[in-house]
């Protein structure tokens, strides 16, 4: 599996904790990245459409809002994908630490 792009990973991480609707995802991604990744609505929904197609996320109706907003949540497949990506990043970090330490020594 190839690496997931940063915005998509942030979207998935945003949904890892709880189901969120579109605007909440945008704000969460911006907050998690410290304002570095600011997605437009078109970009966000392009990513959500592909994640839905690949069954990494699913749509759920939020009953606690007056307008019954649609929210998104991770599926078990999506959660496995995120975990695999985090493991991959951990391996790279570990390798980077070793290499940098070897260079300094």
């Amino acid at each position: 599996m190839e690496p997931i792009s940063e915005p998509v990973l942030l979207i998935l991480l945003s949904l890892a904790g709880q189901p969120r609707h579109g605007y909440a995802i945008l704000k969460d991604v911006e907050e998690m990245s410290g304002g570095r990744v600011v997605l437009s609505t078109g970009t966000l929904y392009g990513a959500l459409r592909r994640l839905l197609e690949d069954r990494w996320i699913e749509r759920v109706k939020q009953s606690d809002t007056a307008r019954g907003k649609v929210a998104y949540r991770l599926t078990s497949g999506g959660r496995s994908g995120v975990e695999a990506e985090v493991d991959r990043m951990k391996r790279i970090t570990r390798l980077a630490k070793l290499r940098v330490a070897a260079k300094e020594a």
Partner: peptide, 13 residues
């Protein structure tokens, strides 16, 4: 700036 170009690797899914 909109982040659109960073969806370059979405086909990995």
């Amino acid at each position: 700036r909109s982040g659109a170009e960073r969806l370059s690797r979405t086909e990995t899914w």
